[in-house]
């Protein structure tokens, strides 16, 4: 039952995968001016263990829960310092055991604007940049958020603000730190009562906790290659634990720490066609599955 993660995983993946596209919300990269990159990213995320609160367990009525996502991504360089990106995934969930139905559908459209407000190049060729990112996400279909762990998403609008600092000590090497605060709008269910976080709520409306995430990346990016390794920590600022042997719930406190690696290669420079592969794993969590994720993506850039 715990699938909680899948949802957030998908969001995160969206971020890390789109990065290939030239950028993810949390990286230190901008699209070149007047370049449009479009691509598709496939990811597959699965777990057979999850944390019920802080208790790590398996569930015979879930077996292995797999979330597949096929995401359209696009990025555009408005100016040398401002990029816009958008992505929209189609998501499938499936449990290998038990009787619960698979779910699938168009998930959430995410749009971001990333602006570089500081760029300092020093005499020793090191480069320091700082970015601010605004993000908004809106569900694009009326999938149900009341069927975790098989729901494909939270079904709620979100908006976030992110600050990213990126340092390239020498050309090619980089280290990036990024933090985001995401406001999550309330979600509506089809039922008029639910129990969570120690209380019976006699309403169909669920208050969704906001989310804080922090990440640190390091790696190499130069020429045809980009190879980041990213450690991400998500903290949900509220919400209750999954109760013993209960189903997970949309507003549970879903926390995790995960490690992702991506390898991106541009076939012809400058970057008309690129592909990437990636993998990630949840190291620790709470009310999420300990998932392993693989991704692959293909991108094409148009120069206007």
């Amino acid at each position: 039952m715990k699938q909680l993660r899948s949802l957030r995983a998908v969001i995160l993946l969206a971020a890390s995968a789109a990065s290939a596209a030239a950028q993810t919300a949390g990286d230190g990269i901008l699209m070149p001016k007047k370049v449009l990159s479009a691509g598709v990213v496939y990811s597959q995320d699965s777990w057979d263990q999850y944390w019920e609160g802080s208790l790590k367990r398996t569930n015979g009525n879930i077996g292995t829960l797999t979330t597949k996502s096929l995401m359209m991504v696009a990025g555009y360089g408005v100016t040398g310092n401002l990029s816009l990106t958008a992505n929209l995934p189609y998501v499938w969930t499936h449990a290998t055991q038990g009787v619960l139905s698979d779910m699938s559908g168009i998930q959430d459209l995410t749009i971001s604007a990333k602006y570089r407000f500081l760029r300092v190049q020093s005499a020793d060729r090191s480069l320091f940049s700082a970015f601010i990112v605004g993000t908004a996400a809106v569900p694009m279909s009326n999938y149900t958020p009341d069927f975790y762990p098989l729901s494909i998403g939270t079904g709620g609008e979100r908006a976030g603000v992110r600050m990213t600092l990126d340092l390239q000590p020498t050309p090619g090497l980089f280290v990036t730190g990024s933090s985001a605060y995401t406001f999550c709008n309330n979600v509506k269910l089809n039922r008029n009562s639910y129990y969570t976080d120690g209380q019976l709520y006699l309403t169909n409306e669920v208050a969704m906790p906001n989310v804080l995430d922090n990440s640190v990346s390091a790696g190499y990016r130069r020429g045809r290659w980009m190879v980041p390794v990213t450690l991400t920590q998500q903290r949900t600022l509220g919400g209750g634990d999954i109760r013993r042997q209960d189903m997970p719930f949309v507003s549970n406190r879903m926390d995790f720490t995960r490690l992702d690696g991506v390898l991106r290669y541009s076939i012809n420079v400058p970057k008309d066609l690129a592909f990437q592969i990636g993998a990630g794993h949840v190291l620790r969590g709470r009310n999420v599955g300990q998932s392993t994720t693989i991704t692959s993506g293909l991108f094409y850039a148009y120069h206007f």
């Binding site: 993000t135 908004a136 609008e157 908006a159 976030g160 406001f183 309403t203 409306e205 669920v206």
Partner: peptide
Amino acid sequence: ALVAVGCDKSV
């Protein structure tokens, strides 16, 4: 974006 979503969430 912040104004749009950062409002009262009490149920």
